[in-house]
Write a protein that binds this DNA or RNA. Structure first.
Lengths: 208, 208
DNA sequence: TTCCGCATATGACAAATGTCACTTTCCGGG
DNA sequence: CCCGGAAAGTGACATTTGTCATATGCGGAA
């Protein structure tokens, strides 16, 4: 099995290479120490798996991974990180990484590589324990704090589905002009300019 | 430990009650068979944990759970379901449920309840295996397939930030009319009606 | 070169949108 | 009972938006 290894810290890279190659199953085709190199080396070697640090100088491992997956949707990316860092986990997961394991657990790295190559996904215990917590919805947007009424709330939702004023009026059994007034008031309360910004607001602040 | 149990199927509810109470540790304070009841019974009993089916007549367990969490952010909700149903898992997770286990694994239900009460989250093996896959980004939107050019792509993004035609024109050094034309063409290609729908499309199909 | 296609642009127009000032209706507290 | 304030509506208006027909310039293919 050929792998490419990327680690900020050359020393870590080297010792890992030694450990991994000592298994006899794994060959470290190339190694690098930056996100840019990760992409380049992946293009060059098309390894079975790329083993990559997350925190690195310059381009993060996540960004590099995203780029690699864009070019090679089947790429198998396994992140190796020093400690379980919340945002990174969620990013790595949602990006489609095949795994995320802690460097401390170095004895599981080789087996994890095997598993990943076979198409499995691997996440360390401590990682998986965090997932539910991470996936909790962001704290709900506080409509009350902005003085937004129930009716206004439902209007936001309809705008955010792309309905016209007329359509909204129909759904809520209101006059079209009334809907316009509601939207006008909403835009005022939220400091926005038009319905498109309202939809954007919905997706980024409320539902995002 | 007091729990409230909600199951569509009265028979299941009854046998589970028997099983759980036979441990001596668990008391089923109340049981119901619908989402509405779930909310009501939660309000009434404030159980340590609420054990709830997902698929039910009327309001789904997810919706009921959402409502309960809205009123009681510390509520511990444990879903019990017949089989691992993809959308449900993701919904339950992102909603902030404390767990999601299969009815088949009835021997783990009691221990799971304990764990949840202690603040842990619990997910069955088969469930956890699905998480990475579920979190994968939706397959990237294929601009080419819809014949969308680079410039059009960047215009979508600006629209999705809520910019007006004039502002977009300024950013891209184009005439305002030109921007209108691009958007018009874009709407045509994507089968949409106005810029708001375009923004919605961006957040739901492209970036969502 | 000529021709085609693309990107860019303009002008005219209808429709949708946002703003504002002003009713009407209704409901609960005094 | 009357009052005041929501909720809902109307009409007028300026602006923005989307559509369309058409024009110009530019680079590549025939």
């Amino acid at each position: 099995m050929d792998i490419v290894m990327i680690d900020d810290d050359r020393l870590v890279a080297l010792s890992l290479k030694t450990i991994l190659e000592s298994t006899g199953q794994i060959r470290v085709t190339a190694s690098g120490s930056s996100g840019a190199e990760a992409i380049e080396l992946y293009r060059l070697h098309k390894p079975d798996v790329i083993l990559m640090d997350i925190r690195m100088e310059g381009m993060s491992g996540i960004d590099a991974g995203r780029e690699i997956l864009r070019e090679f949707p089947d790429a198998k990316i396994l992140y190796l990180t020093t400690f379980s860092d919340d945002e990174y986990i969620i990013n790595a997961l949602s990006m489609g990484a095949k795994g995320y394991i802690l460097k401390q657990d170095f004895e599981v790295i080789a087996p994890s590589l095997e598993a990943v190559m076979r198409g499995q996904s691997v996440f360390g215990d401590k990682i998986i324990g965090k997932i539910p917590e991470l996936m909790k919805p962001k704290e709900r947007f506080d409509f009350d704090a902005h003085g937004i009424t129930d009716k206004e709330r439902s209007i936001i939702e309809l705008v955010a589905e792309g309905l016209s004023n007329k359509e909204i009026a129909g759904k809520l059994f209101l006059g079209e002009g009334t809907v316009r007034n509601y939207i006008s008031s909403l835009l005022d309360k939220l400091g926005l300019r038009d319905r498109t910004q309202l939809a954007v607001f919905y997706y980024t602040e409320i539902k995002g």
